[in-house]
Design a protein around this nucleic acid. Structure first.
Lengths: 195, 195
DNA sequence: TACAAAGGTTAATCTAGTTTAATATTATTA
DNA sequence: TAATAATATTAAACTAGATTAACCTTTGTA
């Protein structure tokens, strides 16, 4: 039997925390399942980010549109990833980011109030969210270093090695945007690599 | 009477958490005061990052040395900032970063075990550290966007506006390194701005 | 089966920022 | 007060990557 969305979330949590019947019930009561079609938005800039989404299937891109109208992809979200504009979520101010589905996507959503309640009812969740945030912070810091100290080609190779499942799944022009280079230049790099 | 290092830490915490006599005693027992001279290291790459440091006076730079020997400044640390290589600290693996004092610096240090104990004895601290990590994560994400969507000049102006106290305190070649540009190009930008 | 639409490539031209190297300026300390 | 070390500037030559624009390939669907 294929696991349901909520099964996937429980499995995910139980890799880090003891999830018994009581915890399962709390989780089930606080998360809401939602499905989106390809192209649909979980969040559009200007909106308040009212919930964090745990992706159970599909794929999303989180991007920023700059003053000249150009898209900059901040991150991809696939199975077992959390997506949100954390800045908007924690301060409850309008979002600068967009989160759009690049495939048909299924998520479980937790509201701002829901998360508070989750921390109250399962205190280890507070610790758990601290830890995943620390990890996200470290990953972001590594990305800044890579941007400063490596060439576009090196970053592309690293990306393909670190996230093969994403590299093989999303169009190249999106990878270029994530890497901070033009799609033409990525094409050149790939051509060069295949020689 | 000028405040001691531990007074500064208590003041800092009490902007977010209720700090009574009991909490003060716990904090005092877990943090250790340390002073460093200009040029001295709080952490050198290859070391294990065994503690996080709260800066009570002075200034530090956290930097990465790339394969070609070039320094890349990740962040500065001044009064009321936390400095560490969080990646090394949380995983207890050797650090890729260096933390060096660019002025005579005074810090209060909390060990890995000490932090665990702090979370146990003052549960709100768990929440507090989650929140500051979320903020740090958001700031780092903003920096990635700025790198991708703004020119060096715009980033320099933003830096000076966001951190005037740092901009007026550290040498320009360090600001250039933080911005990811050469010191010569920063000099050109400044010249251009003064016209 | 054909034809849009989406994604990918190529090549010429251009530019933001680097590198190198020489020269100024400003602190620091003997 | 001179001398050294640290910091900052200038300018010329160079390069990684952007931009533009044309064209090619793949995929989905009428």
């Amino acid at each position: 039997m294929t696991p349901t969305a909520i099964d996937k979330l429980n499995n995910y949590f139980s890799r880090f925390i003891k999830i018994g019947e009581k915890e399962q019930a709390i989780i089930a009561s606080l998360f809401t399942e939602r499905r989106y079609l390809k192209g649909h938005y979980l969040l559009q800039n200007g909106d308040l980010c009212r919930k964090v989404s745990f992706v159970t299937s599909g794929a999303t891109k989180t991007f920023y549109v700059d003053d000249s109208g150009k898209e900059h992809i901040i991150m991809f979200g696939v199975e077992d990833w959390w997506v949100a504009d954390l800045s908007s979520f924690i301060t409850q101010t309008p979002s600068d980011f967009n989160v759009q589905c690049i495939e048909r996507t299924e998520v479980l959503q937790l509201s701002f109030e829901g998360r508070k309640q989750l921390f109250q009812e399962i205190p280890e969740m507070e610790r758990f969210f601290r830890i995943i945030t620390e990890k996200a912070y470290v990953a972001t810091q590594k990305r800044i270093i890579a941007n400063y100290s490596k060439s576009a080609k090196e970053r592309y190779i690293e990306f393909c090695e670190s996230y093969p499942s994403i590299a093989n799944r999303v169009p190249q022009y999106m990878i270029a945007s994530y890497l901070g280079i033009s799609k033409e230049f990525l094409s050149k790099i790939r051509n060069q690599m295949s020689q």
